[in-house]
Computed example of a mutant assay.
Amino acid sequence: MIPAEQLSEPAVRALVDAINANDVDAFRAALTPDATMSDDGSDRDLRQWADREIFSSNGHMDVESEADGGRSLVARYRNDTWGEMRTAWRFDVRDGKVSRFETGQA
């Protein structure tokens, strides 16, 4: 596993740190105001998705590997709703913040 503080891309590191700390404010601060996301190929409402899949269900990422300068991750993601699954994450970064992320099963 790669500790979050060792992730290469600072914007991704901030987002992963926020997820693992269950810190909604830090999560939102790590995103651009117009950030978007998709889950398993379907665009979702980012705020609703994050509330459901991360914050109300104790989401947590254990990063297995990174690529593309730290903008692509494979992680073991777990929450109280779905348990643990191996997931792939891809991030777009603009002005030092995440502007889009895509996640799905790896």
Rank of each mutant, 00 (worst) to 15 (best):
G104S: 06
A26R: 12
A26N: 03
V24Y: 14
A35Y: 04
T103Y: 00
W49M: 04
E53W: 03
R86N: 11
V16K: 01
G104F: 15
G69V: 02
R71T: 11
V12H: 04
P3Y: 06
E64T: 10
E9A: 13
D17W: 00
E5V: 14
A4I: 05
I54W: 09
R71E: 08
G41V: 04
W89G: 00
R86C: 10
L7G: 07
A29S: 13
E64W: 01
T87W: 03
R78Y: 06
E9K: 05
G83F: 04
I2F: 07
F55I: 11
D80L: 15
L73Y: 09
L31G: 01
V98E: 02
E102M: 07
I19T: 13
I54M: 11
T103M: 08
A14T: 02
Q48G: 13
W82Y: 12
N22H: 15
R71Q: 13
A35F: 03
R76Y: 11
V74S: 13
N79H: 13
V74P: 07
M37L: 05
E102W: 00
Q48M: 13
D68R: 07
A106Q: 12
E102A: 10
R90A: 14
E64Q: 12
Y77S: 04
E53L: 01
R47I: 07
Q6A: 11
M85Y: 12
Q105Y: 08
S42Y: 09
R94C: 03
E102H: 03
E9R: 07
E64I: 14
A4Q: 10
M61R: 10
A4L: 05
A14G: 01
E84V: 10
S8D: 06
Y77I: 07
T36G: 13
S8G: 02
R86F: 03
D51A: 13
A29D: 12
L46V: 07
M85K: 07
G96P: 10
T87Q: 09
L73P: 08
A88C: 06
A67V: 06
N58V: 01
A26G: 09
R90V: 15
A75M: 05
I19K: 00
S56E: 15
G83R: 07
L31C: 00
S8F: 00
G104N: 10
L73R: 06
A67E: 11
S99L: 01
S72D: 12
A14D: 04
L73T: 06
E5H: 15
G70L: 02
A26L: 08
A106R: 13
Q105M: 07
N22D: 15
A35G: 01
L73Q: 08
M37G: 09
N22G: 15
A75N: 14
I54A: 00
T36N: 02
N58W: 11
Q6G: 01
G96N: 05
R28A: 07
S65I: 04
A50T: 10
D62M: 02
D51S: 12
S65F: 07
T87H: 11
V24I: 15
R71Y: 02
S56P: 00
P10M: 04
T32E: 00
R52L: 14
E66M: 06
V63S: 08
R78D: 05
D51P: 00
R44G: 03
I54F: 10
D80F: 11
P33Q: 01
N79Q: 14
M61I: 06
P3K: 03
R44L: 03
I2G: 01
R76P: 03
R71M: 08
E53G: 00
R100G: 05
R90P: 05
A67G: 08
E53V: 09
A50H: 05
A88E: 07
L46D: 06
